[in-house]
């Protein structure tokens, strides 16, 4: 099976952007939900979402206040903020537009419809009244596209690079959300003691992990079990460890995959050795910071090994 290096790169980014759009939608949805459940003072402020994306600086250049409206506008409505849903969807579409030759017609139609939907509705999604519907549509439509990847593509390099993009993006988002969530909940301190289970439940919810968690750990939710589940579970497909194991399988059939495999295995080992239960908030943060560097390293190796064309 032939796959152009340039096409492989675009497929990888197609999946990353779609996953990012979906993760942003889920996170926003569960956070909006949370805010409505909690009394003021017991919930984190809206800018926690901006922190998740490390976008404080870019956000600050545009807005003075961390109000709900501004944060929502930044994440849901602006075309030109690199962390917004419209931006991710636009880039996903551009990447499909240039890789249609290796994808099914379905995929193009679904991505194009998602793009048209977002173009039409994003600006009205800022108000809470319309927000749910918008976010649900984005989640459902991206699900549909991921499902089309699963059902309409041969298990070859095309599928492999798409899945790799998704796994990398998911690991990146999962660790970001966990880190920001832990810091925000810690900051609330005693105020939030009574609702801590709810807050952590929300972190799980934002990653579609709540029911799966309950089946593994029961109804009580705290930081240690949440972090253990999201980072280290080998049963839950959205966990970081699960994603890394996927990566190993995805990389194995590719030519010259040794450097990438070595790094993924190293990351896996570090993840395995990390003792979540014993870690303080700072240690968790430190670990995630280092782990994020690993993700960047894996991404760079993938780029150097397979996306390089002669002209560069």
């Amino acid at each position: 099976m032939i796959l152009l290096s340039r096409v492989a790169e675009r497929l990888y980014w197609l999946a990353r952007y779609l996953e990012r759009a979906q993760a942003t939608a889920r996170l926003t949805k569960s956070f909006t939900h949370l805010i409505m459940d909690l009394p003021i003072g017991q919930s984190p402020a809206w800018d926690v979402l901006i922190q998740t994306f490390d976008a404080e600086e870019a956000f600050g250049q545009r807005y003075n206040a961390n109000s709900e409206t501004n944060v929502m506008r930044y994440l849901l409505a602006l075309d030109d903020s690199t962390t917004s849903i419209p931006y991710s969807v636009l880039n996903a579409r551009e990447n499909v537009r240039t890789t249609r030759g290796v994808l099914s017609d379905d995929i193009w139609e679904h991505v194009n419809e998602l793009y048209l939907y977002v173009q039409e509705h994003a600006s009205q999604s800022v108000a809470r009244r319309n927000r749910y519907e918008f976010l649900d549509e984005v989640i459902e439509r991206t699900q549909l596209i991921f499902s089309a990847f699963q059902h309409s593509l041969n298990r070859d390099h095309v599928h492999r690079f798409i899945t790799m993009g998704r796994v990398i993006e998911r690991a990146d988002m999962a660790t970001r959300i966990l880190d920001t969530g832990a810091k925000a909940i810690h900051k609330l301190g005693q105020n939030a003691k009574s609702v801590e289970s709810l807050l952590w439940g929300n972190v799980l919810e934002s990653q579609l992990a709540l029911s799966a968690y309950r089946r593994s750990f029961g109804p009580v939710i705290d930081r240690n079990t949440t972090a253990t589940f999201l980072l280290q579970s080998l049963k839950f497909p959205n966990s970081v460890a699960f994603g890394l194991n996927d990566m190993i399988e995805l990389l194995a059939p590719l030519p010259t995959s040794q450097p990438a495999l070595r790094t993924v295995r190293a990351a896996n080992k570090e993840l395995d050795r990390f003792n979540v239960a014993q870690a303080s908030v700072e240690q968790l943060h430190e670990f995630i910071d280092t782990f994020q560097l690993r993700i960047i390293e894996i991404d760079a190796i993938i780029r150097q090994t397979w996306f390089n064309t002669g002209s560069e």
Partner: peptide, 29 residues
């Protein structure tokens, strides 16, 4: 390209080697 199951290439994807053959850059080389 899609209808034919052929690769859609841009100029940068191709090169002509000293042997005068045309090659495209793929993930397999």
């Amino acid at each position: 390209a899609q209808g034919m199951g052929a690769e859609l290439v841009e100029g940068a994807d191709l090169s002509v080697d000293d042997d005068d053959f045309v090659y495209m850059y793929t993930v397999e080389g």
